[in-house]
Design a protein around this nucleic acid. Structure first.
Lengths: 106, 106
DNA sequence: TTGACATGATACCATTTGGTACCCCATAAA
DNA sequence: TTTATGGGGTACCAAATGGTATCATGTCAA
């Protein structure tokens, strides 16, 4: 639904949450592990994780007494879909990104 | 600087501002014209435009007593650059989008 | 069982945010 | 010169936001 787009954009609007996303890109982490990376309480990190989850950007897997936070690959889809509305404005850049990725694959 | 990314993401976090961006994609508009498209005061629209300008997503050109608001094509660049960090997660997505664009070009 | 650890949940607080109302200035039009 | 229109700027307000502190719960280990 449309709310998903709003939640996704809102989730990425905060610098701490964007950093969490970047950290999780390099590997799954528990809440405690993530908290070690920031200068704030576990409760604050947990709130950010809830917002990220609402935005569909991460998934959480219960594992014993731990909660494994994992980046959701398809979470960026709604945002990219929204951007696709502006093809005529960022075609060139999109093509450049695509080419860079192609080079990386070789 | 890094602040530009934050301002850009923040600008897109609000649904009204995303709608303004979409409207401006179809043509430049004055503040009064934009206000006609929404159920809010001119002052509120003006605030949104200021945020969009801070985010580098639009430019404003003074023209007589009017202010022409124009979508800035390169404004999305910082956001796309940030996304490029997650190549491994949205490679497929990007490919699909690229293919769709290729089809449209034919 | 007992204790330590990982998390959940809530109350509370300061700041930011989205919005209105209001007044002022510049400019176009009569 | 009036008069109307487009916009800037500020004060103010309610709600959302980001954070802490605190307490409760479940689970692993000795």
């Amino acid at each position: 639904m449309q709310m998903q787009i709003q939640n996704a954009f809102r989730a990425l609007a905060d610098p701490t949450r964007r950093e969490i996303v970047q950290i999780l890109a390099s590997g799954d982490m528990t809440i405690a592990q993530l908290t070690d990376q920031f200068d704030m309480t576990r409760a604050a990190v947990k709130k950010h994780l809830t917002v990220l989850s609402d935005g569909g950007l991460i998934t959480v897997e219960a594992r014993g007494r731990e909660r494994i936070n994992r980046l959701e690959p398809n979470g960026l889809a709604p945002i990219l879909d929204w951007f696709s509305y502006f093809d005529q404005f960022w075609d060139d850049r999109l093509n450049n990104l695509k080419e860079a990725i192609e080079r990386n694959k070789k």
